[in-house]
Amino acid sequence: PDLGLTQLFADPNLIENLKKNPKTSEMMKDPQLVAKLIGYKQNPQAIGQDLFTDPRLMTIMATLMGVDL
């Protein structure tokens, strides 16, 4: 199971919303991170391994779920 990750990354406004959010806007200036996020739309399971190697993803996930870290 993808634990709902498919829906989190399926939002067509995902990148724009993250660019507008004060907690994630600075991160979204990294083209490699943006490319990763776009890739998760097609393969949400890929985030599982990346969560352990890129701490920014935890902040992004929390933001998408509405959790304040």
Rank of each mutant, 00 (worst) to 15 (best):
residue 7 Q to P: 08
residue 44 P to A: 08
residue 45 Q to F: 07
residue 67 V to I: 15
residue 54 D to Q: 01
residue 24 T to E: 00
residue 15 I to N: 01
residue 19 K to N: 10
residue 53 T to H: 08
residue 56 R to L: 08
residue 14 L to I: 09
residue 25 S to T: 06
residue 11 D to T: 05
residue 8 L to C: 05
residue 41 K to V: 12
residue 35 A to V: 03
residue 11 D to R: 04
residue 42 Q to V: 11
residue 63 T to E: 07
residue 44 P to R: 01
residue 16 E to G: 06
residue 14 L to M: 14
residue 24 T to R: 00
residue 53 T to N: 14
residue 23 K to Y: 06
residue 64 L to A: 05
residue 22 P to I: 06
residue 16 E to D: 11
residue 20 K to S: 15
residue 40 Y to L: 10
residue 56 R to W: 04
residue 26 E to I: 05
residue 28 M to C: 03
residue 31 P to C: 05
residue 58 M to W: 13
residue 14 L to K: 01
residue 57 L to Q: 01
residue 65 M to K: 13
residue 9 F to S: 01
residue 43 N to D: 10
residue 40 Y to C: 02
residue 67 V to K: 02
residue 62 A to Y: 07
residue 26 E to Y: 04
residue 23 K to H: 13
residue 31 P to F: 05
residue 63 T to Q: 08
residue 51 L to C: 07
residue 39 G to Q: 12
residue 32 Q to V: 13
residue 64 L to Y: 05
residue 19 K to F: 14
residue 37 L to A: 00
residue 52 F to H: 12
residue 36 K to T: 10
residue 65 M to I: 09
residue 42 Q to L: 12
residue 34 V to T: 05
residue 18 L to A: 02
residue 12 P to A: 10
residue 42 Q to F: 12
residue 47 I to G: 07
residue 35 A to K: 10
residue 63 T to I: 15
residue 46 A to T: 15
residue 28 M to L: 08
residue 18 L to P: 00
residue 21 N to L: 03
residue 40 Y to W: 09
residue 1 P to Y: 01
residue 9 F to I: 07
residue 32 Q to K: 11
residue 63 T to S: 08
residue 32 Q to F: 14
residue 20 K to C: 06
residue 27 M to N: 01
residue 46 A to N: 12
residue 41 K to Y: 08
residue 2 D to N: 15
residue 12 P to Q: 06
residue 35 A to R: 08
residue 42 Q to A: 13
residue 8 L to Y: 11
residue 62 A to Q: 11
residue 66 G to A: 08
residue 47 I to S: 06
residue 63 T to H: 10
residue 45 Q to G: 12
residue 8 L to H: 08
residue 7 Q to R: 07
residue 45 Q to W: 12
residue 38 I to H: 07
residue 29 K to N: 13
residue 17 N to D: 11
residue 35 A to Y: 06
residue 38 I to P: 01
residue 19 K to H: 10
residue 12 P to G: 06
residue 33 L to P: 00
residue 40 Y to H: 03
residue 66 G to Q: 10
residue 69 L to F: 06
residue 41 K to I: 11
residue 52 F to P: 13
residue 21 N to F: 06
residue 32 Q to W: 11
residue 62 A to C: 10
residue 36 K to Y: 05
residue 51 L to F: 09
